Each structure stands twice: as structure tokens, then as C-alpha cells.
Simulated assay, not measured.
Amino acid sequence: MSERRFKGFGDKALPFLKALDFHQNREWFLENKDLFESHLKEPLGDLVEDMTERFAGAGLPFRGDRVKSQFRIKRDTRFAKDKSPYNRHLSALLSADGSKWTESGCFYVCIGLPGVRDCYAAVAWWQQKPELLLAMRKAIVEKPEEYRAMVKALKRNRLSLHDVDRLKRLPRGFDTDEADIAEALRNRHFVVRLDIEPDSITSPDLADRLFDFAVRAKPLIDWGKKIEKRVPA
């Protein structure tokens, strides 16, 4: 395996985001763009390339491009109440097809300010196409032992499904008296999350921790992939 690319984010990465949160104007950003590039954007590109190589070696279905996998720091404010021009975080997404607009399983990392967006990583089935989400819900009902085995495997790996954007009621056409199955059916997404200590992002060891997390999250991806294969293209 080639020499690791990722050397850590720059020591001015979080101070830059804090200052950007305060200034939020194009003039300030352009004056400090070199700082953004060297302490945030380029290191995140290195991290994407590093993780892509590690994931390939471990058989994990996540890959990305150092530029295309990153979400823009500039916000699209056309339909937003908040007209601030810049995000207070920088993030990237790796997926099976290398696209960051995937409907399949993905790996996501966000470098942000505590209390604003936070620093974290996630492995998820996120915003799946309706056919896949329906198939997942049917699989939970028809083969609950497989779903429960996945949850137990995650627990053994010190992970649990993250409650995010869950339906308040069971989706139409589904019914169950079992609490864990009802909870699962109300999921729109299936997510496990790793919180990242903001002070640790300057260390190259961050890549090791993210890789370990993704490996521990593999039961979730394997469960979804098995179902995905049965969904007509």
C-alpha cells in the first residue's frame, strides 16, 4: 500500500471556520481563501484519497475523488431562510459509484464547529430510492432475524443505529406489535455515527479511527447490500 496521504487537518482549520461563522461575507472569504485551501480543502482531499485506498483493500464499497466528493463550502441560498453565503463546515461523501449524490450505502465525514454542525463521520443508507426503502421495510418484517442479527453485530462492534428523521407513525401498509421492529420500520434512513473530537482533527491518526469505524459499521452495509441486490434496477 502506498504511503498515507493524509497528514491531518491544519491547525488553523477550526479557527478558520469560527472566523467564517462570524464574518460570513465574500470579501473576507476571498482574503482568506489560501488558508481555507491549505488547512481544510486540501487535507480533506488527502483524506478522501487515503480512505478510498483503505476501503478498497478491506472490500468496503466506498470510493471517492479528492475534488468531486467534497461538498462546496459556498451555500445555495435560493430557497433557504438563512442567507449566510458559506457553510460552517466542510464535508465529503464516499459511495459505491463514487458519486456524492448516491442512493446507496455511503460513508460521510463532516468537519465542523461544535454546536453548529459538529465533527463526525457516518456510515449510512441515506435517502434511498423509494423501491429500496420499501424493500428494506419488507425485509425487516419478513426476515426480522436478519435485521436483529445486524443490530446485534453493530452492538458487538460498539455501534448502534442513530435515530434521525424517523417517522412518527408506522408507514402505511405495515403493522407490528414488536417494539424494535416498529422502531425500525419508522426509519427513513439507517445510520451509524462516530463523533470526532474537534481537537483531534490535526492528527494523521484520524484516518485510522475513521477506517476502524467503517469496518465496524460493515454489518449495516452488508445487510442493505443483500436487500439492494433483490430490487429491480
Rank of each mutant, 00 (worst) to 15 (best):
I181F: 06
F213Y: 10
A122I: 09
D180C: 10
N187L: 13
K218N: 13
K129R: 12
D177W: 08
W126P: 05
L185F: 02
C119E: 02
M150N: 03
F213H: 05
L161N: 01
F213L: 12
G115C: 08
G224N: 03
Y120L: 14
N187M: 14
D163C: 11
R186P: 01
A153L: 11
A217S: 06
D180F: 12
R166N: 04
K143L: 06
R188Y: 03
A139P: 01
R158K: 15
C119H: 02
S160I: 06
A122D: 03
F213K: 08
V191Q: 01
D222C: 07
E145H: 08
P198T: 02
D180W: 11
E131L: 12
R137A: 00
R156G: 04
D118A: 09
A124T: 03
H162G: 10
A121P: 03
R186C: 08
C119M: 12
R156D: 05
W223T: 00
I221N: 00
L220G: 06
C119T: 00
D175A: 15
A122P: 00
A139V: 00
P114F: 12
P219R: 06
A121I: 07
A153C: 11
L132N: 05
A122K: 09
L206W: 00
H162C: 15
F174V: 05
E197R: 15
L220K: 02
E146A: 10
Y147S: 02
V215S: 14
I140K: 00
F211S: 13
D177R: 15
W125R: 07
R188D: 07
P198E: 04
R117V: 11
Q127N: 13
S200M: 14
D177E: 14
Y147D: 00
R169A: 14
G115L: 13
